[in-house]
Design a protein around this nucleic acid. Sequence first.
DNA 1: CTGTTAGCGCTTTCAC
DNA 2: GTGAAAGCGCTAACAG
Lengths: 375, 375
Amino acid sequence: MASEHPPISAPTISDVAAAAGVGRATAARTLGGYGSVSAVARERVLAAAERLGYRSNILARSMTTGVTNSLGIVVADIGNTFFSGLIRGASDAASARNLDVIVISTYEDLAAERHAVGVLLDKQVDGIVVSSAAVGAPDAEHLAEATRRGTPVVLIDRLVPGLHLDAVVVDNRAEARRVTRTLIEAGHRRIGFLWGPTTDTGIDTLDELLTVNTRSLWSDAERLRGYLDALQDAGIPYAPGLVTTGAKTEESAARAALAMLQSEDPPTALFATEAEALIGALHAVQDLGLSYPGDVSLVGFDDTSWATVMQPPLTMIAQPVDAMGRLAVEQVVSRIGSPEYEPRLHMLPAELMTRSSIGPPSRVPGAPTASAGKA
Amino acid sequence: MASEHPPISAPTISDVAAAAGVGRATAARTLGGYGSVSAVARERVLAAAERLGYRSNILARSMTTGVTNSLGIVVADIGNTFFSGLIRGASDAASARNLDVIVISTYEDLAAERHAVGVLLDKQVDGIVVSSAAVGAPDAEHLAEATRRGTPVVLIDRLVPGLHLDAVVVDNRAEARRVTRTLIEAGHRRIGFLWGPTTDTGIDTLDELLTVNTRSLWSDAERLRGYLDALQDAGIPYAPGLVTTGAKTEESAARAALAMLQSEDPPTALFATEAEALIGALHAVQDLGLSYPGDVSLVGFDDTSWATVMQPPLTMIAQPVDAMGRLAVEQVVSRIGSPEYEPRLHMLPAELMTRSSIGPPSRVPGAPTASAGKA
DNA sequence: CTGTTAGCGCTTTCAC
DNA sequence: GTGAAAGCGCTAACAG
């Protein structure tokens, strides 16, 4: 039942100060939580603020302080569960710190990524987490530039060779090597690799493959190298037809798997580098009336809940998406505090979820050494 | 090779104006794209801006104009593919309009949702898209309030009874009724419903169920009603044991399905209201060594790519997530333009992806009418 | 501890 | 058309 004319627009600090009978600065200090104010003054200000329903205008605050309490996160595809898992971890960590998150999807397009970073910089976010489409430092000038200008950026999921920034990734090469070895130990020698580098020129030699691989995303390139490492460890020669070179789509993976499986000397195991690729592989296997692990063994990156419900359940590599997201924002936050230390590389372990899609090879290929392994 | 001392901090409109030899206002006009400027002046300003590398400070702009070119979207769980699909559609539509999106996850917690909306309002987003955890208007004061204060909000996926706002949803009741009828037409009379209302008090009568259902999220409540509608249409009495009352988790769904399937008069079909529930159901089926659709038929909401690769492939209801997301931002945008028209309700159709998880019932329950249906 | 006084960079009257 | 000048709401530097 008051008398003071309620301001038509939202109350400002001046309104509160006036209502409390103190100067603007005092009101600002108590409301902004800085400087020091006497207990009495604080009480009166708080009461007045409460009464007026005061909410600070954070745009104005951000303009003068330069901090927006928001983080940008740019990923390839929000709709992909790997990335949405990352985002989930990141945004949980962010809200725990009272930061909010602006999400942008680039669909692996570098131009879109540059634009996204520009938007974020314009918005004056306090930091950026990005899973970049850049395959090398020259592509990533926008990231280097942002850092230089004072907005910390941390890479997530993918490193960019030549770019020294904080990063949170999984050791893709080691993980790929490990599963491939698992396959080899089960007796496999012909292992199909789904989602090798995309290229239209045929790849015949290992050298060519390695060269082309250089132009792939770090994570993809690393997985291929890990696969190749394991092959080499076991003295198995590289077989051109077993590494895919098509587009990275489910359909393309299905076609490639189909072709491999129908070839004269088909693979006895398939390693899929991504959930989508695995689904493609499964389609191929099913279309051919094959079963796993009887006819072909199967493994894939990026574990999901449906893997447990497949018959038989799928053995998968589980990346710690939630932890990666959290760690990335923690890293970016600590970088905001103290910008000048060496970039930190966080390599998190992945976990091989052993289930039942790996078995012994269905047949013994040319080489005589084959069936020696286990039995 | 210049001479003008490069400003230590980013160039402002004043810098550009000075460099161009015009007044601030003229520079502001051409750079801000409002008012009118002579061709010559515009050229000089543009050139100067280019030369200085001017980027407008959108925080300052937002502060004076009140528009931030950003939208808030609050969902229950970013990690859930249904919501990440929504977000994907929404953020695509947003970037097409040069808006960016701030995403917040609430995990179905109303307090978190209120907080999220508060944050968004503080950020002065131009509009909010929310899939609310409110089950009735009293819970949704924060949404009504936001609208009243001039920030349009559009509901997505879920209506809030009693709250008249723009909304984009699927007719959950009709869709649930439709699949249930499909099941009935296949001969089923005992159909388990996974993810009925969560409650610890037992539910014995239909009335009790209906009452409790009132306290569920709109979408969940509607799906149950649709199920009940179809039962009633077919003259099948409500069977208490066939509607779940546990928590909404995969494990709980699995337990409930297990219990149903092991009961004396088990269901011959299971209708799962969510992907997680379906996975739970599949676990139960498999643990019991049952197969589908031979022993039990299965259907679920929220189609995904892995449904096609299950053996047999799963029949699912596909919600148009992408379109829902897009439409929601379109709606919120048009509401920003002209705030005063009747709230619009967009009910999008879902699609039943018929595959192979529905078959005839495995056995004939008590009633004599059963096997009459098809054969 | 507190009030006064300047800005932050932009938009927006308002005269010229 | 164009420039000068007045804010937007806040923080910050400076006296007292």
